[in-house]
Design a protein around this nucleic acid. Sequence first.
DNA 1: GATGAATGAGTGTTCATTCAT
DNA 2: GATGAATGAACACTCATTCAT
Lengths: 209, 209, 209, 209
Amino acid sequence: MARPAQVPANKRRIPRQARAAETVEAILEATAQILEAGGLAALTTNAVAARAGVSIGTLYQYFDDKNAILLALARREMAATLGRLAREALPAAERSPEDRVRAAVRATLDAFRGRMRARKAVVQAILAQGLAVELVGPVASFMAGHRSAAMPNLTREQVFVLSRALMGTIRAAVMEEQPFLRSAAFEDELVRLALAYLGAVTAPSAAAR
Amino acid sequence: MARPAQVPANKRRIPRQARAAETVEAILEATAQILEAGGLAALTTNAVAARAGVSIGTLYQYFDDKNAILLALARREMAATLGRLAREALPAAERSPEDRVRAAVRATLDAFRGRMRARKAVVQAILAQGLAVELVGPVASFMAGHRSAAMPNLTREQVFVLSRALMGTIRAAVMEEQPFLRSAAFEDELVRLALAYLGAVTAPSAAAR
Amino acid sequence: MARPAQVPANKRRIPRQARAAETVEAILEATAQILEAGGLAALTTNAVAARAGVSIGTLYQYFDDKNAILLALARREMAATLGRLAREALPAAERSPEDRVRAAVRATLDAFRGRMRARKAVVQAILAQGLAVELVGPVASFMAGHRSAAMPNLTREQVFVLSRALMGTIRAAVMEEQPFLRSAAFEDELVRLALAYLGAVTAPSAAAR
Amino acid sequence: MARPAQVPANKRRIPRQARAAETVEAILEATAQILEAGGLAALTTNAVAARAGVSIGTLYQYFDDKNAILLALARREMAATLGRLAREALPAAERSPEDRVRAAVRATLDAFRGRMRARKAVVQAILAQGLAVELVGPVASFMAGHRSAAMPNLTREQVFVLSRALMGTIRAAVMEEQPFLRSAAFEDELVRLALAYLGAVTAPSAAAR
DNA sequence: GATGAATGAGTGTTCATTCAT
DNA sequence: GATGAATGAACACTCATTCAT
């Protein structure tokens, strides 16, 4: 009777009490930890519930299925990356192009420096479901959007190439667990790559078919 | 690298007779077809055996476990890519830098244009096991090795950035099933990216820390 | 029969206040609706509580367990059938035997014509627990009792055969969702069956062992 | 390779070896026993496998799902009933109508005299899925078919009423575990019911609307 | 060598029920 | 009295792998 009218499109419970919010957080944290420790193969619903200190039933009160947990985690991580971008890259907007690019590169690198294996697994799971666009999209459009202010409009392919070249390289470094992931030299090369490509796009002399 | 013969140096039988080689081939082909049709989730050993027209027991006569099949398939695909590189990129070696880069890009693109889903699944499975280095390595070192002939020595990081930027971008296009994967515009941008980066590395004016 | 009041004589609260009675009614109505819409498989206590606009805890304040709800619903439906019989069959008592039989048949058919799926599910659930006697009993004894007034005393077996033949045929029509359930032809045949059997019992020439 | 081409429309294995046939039989027998002992509620796939002395995986090698086991059992029981009908009712064909009806009634009663609870559960399960027509149909059409030789063609409703009145009454006796199920008096009344109805249908004087 | 029947640990998921708030 | 978050036993089902034939 007279429900508070908060019930969303998806049928699962939305936490209204403090305890419930804590539970959701515990589940996501447990998921991240398990991914971190054992990768995607170790991620079972029972394991998540156990590590979250929650019964399996509770887990299903907040998430439709195993996948939904992964998705929620991915969204959370993406939101964190966007936040970092906003915090680090935007303030650099008035400075030189190089500074701006470097800020963006560093924000992305930072995003991957924390829980590598967890991120790896999340990324993997997301890609396996064709949800990449939904989740990577915001980050890419952020990059493109804020660059177009001082730069020629990039084509669809150019935005894609620039964002994926950077993220793909970082991703590879994460996946292959390259030792130089945290080095300044690696960051420098990424910046060089982005600047060079942007320069080539702006002055389209070469590389014409 | 240079393994003695087709199948791993493990305890399982190494096919010495024609029929055995056919069986192995049938299993690998069945695996590729199933991956292509249904992705990694559809790949069960029973399904592979059935499609290969072989009993499940026979399958285990040639492969230690499910993973070994995937690995063998990955090796086969990598070998094909290397072959393409050798065939397409090497003959272009005497021509302009752009031609050489374009040949390499096209060879890599070609490698991904066939069985996208199968490749996607193989790549996914391989990455999930941290075997990327072993398998991607040869391709990367090929690129680096043959470029250094007419080019300044690249640092470890630079080889990594160049190869992974290209492969990562292509990989992303495959994974996200981007419509422009087969377009000339996409190939052009990849070439532009590689040339720009190589140019920046050669003339290291900007982007120095 | 003549139970003191609505709900079982068990340990759970007997509604004494208006609001409580409404709650019980809401729960029963919700149960019927869910059975109607999705059958027995869709009947979960949580679904009932939700549709009744009541918390799951409240539901358990009025019913011992899920089964008790089903039982209460069954009793309610049986009471309705008995009421219909009393209303339709008794007034016909002074008329011809055929009229009386037809009135009884129609009353029974009517009882099944409303919420077929709900009835089906209730009947199913009841039968599954061997409670048929308790619930079908009253109806059967009604038929037998009121017929014996103007008719030779029937043996135990005969009462059983007559009542179950009619109810069993109707039940089968409901369960199999026969299209002619609502047809006049079907009702005619049921009447014919009952009259023929009654006639044969009265004039026991044939069928003697 | 070169499979014997026995593979049926459903994907599950059809037993080709003797051992396999035994396994299927063991599973069906276990199912009947469990139903007999504990009813439908006790029928879990694990219980069936355990009682059959078979692993749960084996069970699923021969049956698509739990339901399929029940269906197979139902079919087996129905086949038994049909066999009994053929054996008992057909030889009586040249004798009096009463003898023929009695033979049919007895065959049906016999069918329910064995494992009452198992039958009860099977019947219940079948009805719950609307498969009644498929399974009861043959028996009903047998009754109708062999009667029409010496008797007026019955309408759809009449065949239904006759067969379901008999089976429904027997079913009720089984479900309610009536003590007279095995008595001669009960059989007599069933015969009387069938004969009376057939007589009334043949001489349609009464029961016209 | 080949077969395929058998295995069983393990998975995701449901839902009746409890009890602290 | 009412709430709804939490519980966890139980379930149906999968699939990599073994081994007697």
